[in-house]
Design a protein around this nucleic acid. Structure first.
Lengths: 193, 193
DNA sequence: TTTGTATTGGAATGATTATTCCAAATAAAA
DNA sequence: TTTTATTTGGAATAATCATTCCAATACAAA
């Protein structure tokens, strides 16, 4: 009886993610979304609820993808300093190869929607704590295996590297020269020596 | 003959700066500005040209103030590592004391208006180069006076500290605990040892 | 006080915003 | 093929957007 959906929800959500990522919440209109997603206005409201709800879904998808990305790098690289280097350099490549200059959706959202959106702010705080823990645990692994001096504090190093990571995500929008950014990374990673 | 202006242009510009700083370009409406600045809609267009022109003026005022602020700290502090520490900790205090969570106007503008606004992007690139030079020259001064090991590269350290600075400006919006941020700063400044 | 010019308040404009609604189209099941 | 639930296109809505315009106001100089 029921007519089946004419589009793949996940596919459309990915397109919405790209658009919000590039333009931000306020500069993206429903009309932009309707045009870009290729679905009808009514379908958009029916399937995703509205602009705010769609933004949140798109944002959560991004978080999920990028968290998984970090985990995969850390899991597959036993040399901890090398693992961080790969993570940072991949982020640099992603930024500098992207002619759109979208940057990092999480960073963009932090600066655009704080202050103002309490719901998003809560998600962002969780995200920060998760990411710092991910970083710190990986440093701790390096301490455990003797790669990193055991007098170091894993949590502090994790926080510091995550902070540097955020800074790179901002500045890669302004200056897309990857070599300069890689030098910054090398210097930042010297905290592990 | 001519009636004199009923308001101080500089004073009004400062109010515009505060509002754009807090809400960003897109989320600030002309009505918001009219209400907040206390001047008439027509006066706003007459005196400042329009929304974009007013934003640019407000943004340049912010850059001017914050550049002067950095210069003053560096000039008045002969101990280079201490000078950086003061700069970072003042930025942290400013962020964590601000209940509005405005963050840094330059960082906010970078993530909101790139991609899209080529004029602003050019200003942001200049700003980055200026700031990195300011940082690097101060590091170089430390090398010249023997405070910092002469094998270090001033430019790289300057860039790395500026990157960390930007990261702090982002994360201070998410987590306003100043002590965590100060630990990050201390670790970051160890590149000077 | 009168004169002349710039400022002012507020209405008007036309574009765009997010959202809702409904008749027509569509496709799976009967 | 008919039935039926759902999607779809596009119009309609009401709010808000940036900007312009003008008559009324207000002030410095005469």
């Amino acid at each position: 009886m029921p007519r089946t959906k004419q589009f793949d929800k996940q596919e459309v959500l990915e397109k919405a993610m790209e658009l919000f990522w590039e333009k931000g919440f306020h500069a993206t209109s429903i009309q932009d979304l309707v045009t870009s997603l290729g679905i009808n206005r009514a379908s958009l409201y029916d399937t995703f609820g509205g602009k705010e709800a769609l933004f949140e879904s798109a944002f959560q998808l991004y978080r999920q993808i990028s968290t998984k990305h970090i985990q995969q790098i850390f899991e597959s690289e036993p040399n901890v300093k090398q693992g961080f280097k790969v993570l940072f350099e991949k982020a640099i490549e992603e930024s500098t190869n992207d002619i759109c200059k979208k940057g990092c959706f999480v960073v963009n959202t932090t600066t655009e929607l704080i202050p103002g959106d309490d719901k998003i702010q809560k998600i962002l705080l969780e995200n920060k704590n998760n990411a710092e823990t991910l970083f710190a645990d990986y440093v701790q692994k390096g301490i455990g295996t003797g790669q990193i001096d055991s007098t170091k504090e894993a949590r502090e190093i994790g926080s510091m590297l995550f902070t540097l990571f955020n800074g790179i995500r901002v500045l890669a929008k302004v200056d897309t020269n990857p070599n300069k950014l890689k030098k910054v990374v090398n210097l930042g990673l010297s905290v592990l020596d």
